[in-house]
Design a protein around this nucleic acid. Structure first.
Lengths: 231, 231
DNA sequence: TGGAAATATCGGGGAAACACTGATCCCCGC
DNA sequence: GCGGGGATCAGTGTTTCCCCGATATTTCCA
């Protein structure tokens, strides 16, 4: 496993990579992995969106690796911001979820690749290199699914997709927080939004998911959340 | 930090630790962390329950670190097995979920400690050391909460029983209906009781189960109901 | 490219639910 | 017979629900 010293050998300086993840231990794993490559180097780490933005100006990384589930789903938000403010810096998203939902959202938010935490370490390195070369990196199943979705977009294929996939990013975020048992006020607080806004999202959720009452929505969200963590 | 070489310096061999997690990158982080301590050493890694069991006999670790969400929630299953077959080997559970429920289950499954992935790396090392000394490691909030649940159970050693067993018949009835997704009004109707009465039961439930808010109670009830029907 | 649709964010107001406290009644054990 | 806990309900203030509407931005599509 490449126990070469990760310092600069000679001419070319290593490519600077920024890590964004709120799990310090996981950051350590990725940092170790990346630093073990002679031509790559972790220039900084961030555990929150704010830290990430600060680190961008401070370290000027050539690539950013972002955890989708940073603080809820703020990874998506962060990537949206990054991809507009630093449009030339490619983003690589990763997550412990293999849900297609997140990959799709990550790409829409500006990510150039998506890897799951279950994947072997080398795959992450492959993805890093691909993305640095300006290519898109996706696992085979993932790209198949996404392509299939695009192709079948016009025809009668909407039957298989979960209604949850039709939620907007914000709506999904609220939905997941509901599933974790947070109250409206807690969610509003966490997202720095008005309680009224969260109530509107609940309305939208009920409508999009065809649920009649608040408790029903809550139950659906909770079951969804449990199911997700269970596999 | 401690950039000392993690190999055996002289007399005492390092304490062997086994890692069980299905995220290779995360394993790498923990391994790096543990190996950076002179007196600790990762003797093996496992990504599945089977690998873990094999590694137990092969490496005879002094401590096992287990991801609760291994393959769904098999981490719990694994810990149950380990804590009976290798009763003398302490288990340390960790997870990305901060839910009290998982901590509770992990402890019931035989874990001697529970740390979240959000915690700083040093905390994991602290936990490892505590658990190796035969102590229990929990975060402050977590232990407060769990202790709160167990107090009121009486003086007897009912520490292992679920707090749900302490509910009165009526309370349990309401609790189960909540878990089925019924609203307060529906329950009142079904039991031919005043809505006010059901609200009182909700209060009692929240108190007896040490839950802070209504949604939390609902989540707990739903989770309970799903688990019960699942086996 | 221009306009329709979706998204994100907030507010109002009445009805319902919730949170917290207190107050009966009943039963059971000591 | 008296204390305690359970079962039942009510009062009151707070919060949430639910159906509205509003506005600005983004996205989409013809």
């Amino acid at each position: 496993m490449a126990n070469a010293v990760p310092t600069i050998s000679k001419g070319k300086p290593a490519i600077a990579v920024l890590l964004v993840d709120d799990h310090p231990i996981l950051r350590r794993g990725i940092a170790d992995l990346i630093n073990s490559e002679p031509d790559l180097k972790v220039c900084g780490e961030a555990g929150t969106m704010q830290e990430a933005l600060a680190a961008m100006t401070q370290f000027k990384p050539r690539l950013v690796v972002v955890d989708v589930s940073l603080d809820g789903n703020n990874g998506i938000e962060l990537m949206k911001t990054l991809s507009t403010r630093w449009a030339t810096t490619p983003l690589l998203a990763y997550s412990m979820h293999d849900e297609t939902i997140y990959a799709e959202r990550a790409l829409r938010a500006g990510a150039k690749g998506y890897v799951m935490k279950q994947t072997p370490p080398e795959t992450l390195l492959t993805a890093v290199r691909q993305v640095l070369k300006g290519k898109i990196f996706l696992s085979d199943q993932m790209s198949d699914r996404l392509l299939g979705k695009l192709i079948g977009a016009g025809t009668t294929s909407a039957a298989v997709t979960s209604p949850v996939e039709r939620l907007s990013d914000r709506e999904l975020e609220v939905f997941e927080m509901l599933g974790k048992g947070l109250s409206t006020a807690q969610i509003a607080d966490k997202l720095c939004l008005s309680v009224k806004t969260i109530e509107t999202y609940r309305e939208h959720l009920k409508q999009k998911l065809s649920l009649g009452s608040g408790p029903e929505l809550l139950r659906y969200a909770i079951e969804w959340s449990l199911e997700k963590t269970r596999q």
